[in-house]
Nucleic acid binder design. Sequence first.
DNA 1: CGATGAAATTGACCGTGGTCAATATTTGGA
DNA 2: TCCAAATATTGACCACGGTCAATTTCATCG
Lengths: 192, 192
Amino acid sequence: MAKAVQQRTLKTRAKLLDAAQAVISESGYEAMRVEEVVLRAGVAKGTFFSHFKDKDALMDQLIGAEIDRHLDGIDALDAPTSIAEMTDAMMPLITFMTCERYVFDVILRHSGAAANADIGPIAMTFGRHAEVVTKWLWDQPFRKDISAELQAEGVQAFMVQAISLIFCSLHNSVAPRERLETYLTAWLMPTA
Amino acid sequence: MAKAVQQRTLKTRAKLLDAAQAVISESGYEAMRVEEVVLRAGVAKGTFFSHFKDKDALMDQLIGAEIDRHLDGIDALDAPTSIAEMTDAMMPLITFMTCERYVFDVILRHSGAAANADIGPIAMTFGRHAEVVTKWLWDQPFRKDISAELQAEGVQAFMVQAISLIFCSLHNSVAPRERLETYLTAWLMPTA
DNA sequence: CGATGAAATTGACCGTGGTCAATATTTGGA
DNA sequence: TCCAAATATTGACCACGGTCAATTTCATCG
């Protein structure tokens, strides 16, 4: 008999999430401290870890939710008809993903789930993103020699690469938008 | 007048590196503890941090050196004449990069340097890897519509993607070698 | 040699994430 | 309404990376 989750539990979790969100709004993701969150939420430290496996799990939820919000916006758009349009459509998401180096690190760490058991919010968003891109590619004037799914995987690979290079001193002279557009043109519209 | 570095310094650094390597050989990278290393090296904890900025910096050196050894092997090879050969040539490197999830995380974190000042060993190896691939691509029967440099950047992006998916429960049914070959064929030999 | 300043080393101490046995609260049944 | 089992909460405690003022060792020069 599945036991119903107590009201108390929901309330405590909400308090923790609110407190965390507040800290992040004020000081950013990297600066978030578990101690600060439990202090504001008015609960003991141990309570935090009975609601979230670890600090990373909370970040997974918060950042995953934020990415999902961006995907909602992207999903509402008409399918882009050019590489430039596609790149533009992804820019708000990319901007968020690069708002802090720490945020991008967390995203990378969670982009693939470690075990079947724990496919977290961020991993889900990667799946969703691939779906959106696949849908976009369905009947576009792009290459036809490979599947839309494979094309979408490539789009993700290049998006990650373009973002990584933002944080790389050796390659940060080119803006991410232009770099991504170059990549995607070469990937989706080869002429040789 | 630049003061020569003391013998003592070199000796201590060597002791620390040896101790770290020993711990890693026995228990792996992830299990390495600074306390254990300084204990074996017979120095105080503070000494460790006067030789390495932090634990990550030591990992950067050790893992970077290991990657360099693999690149030496790759560099000694004849330029591959097919995608399959190219993929095979990169497999030993990929195998090392995926020996532990932690190792891959460290590599990703250091693949782009945070500031011009600290381009570490791992970041250097990425540059070197790109050069090797670019050289390979120079006169190969692959696509000619984009530069060899851009092709090499793509090869790196797909290598990272293929590795990431190894650690992803949603996509670990395909072996990394086959996945990479699929990616590289689509990237380097498009037929549309 | 002995003195003196520079460089290396030390270890007590701190910040922060995470654990767990003890305690408090809730729930469902008699 | 009361009791017992299930569930949630607590906070002292630990692990481990990292800091820094005090101390020791080293190199150079008169």
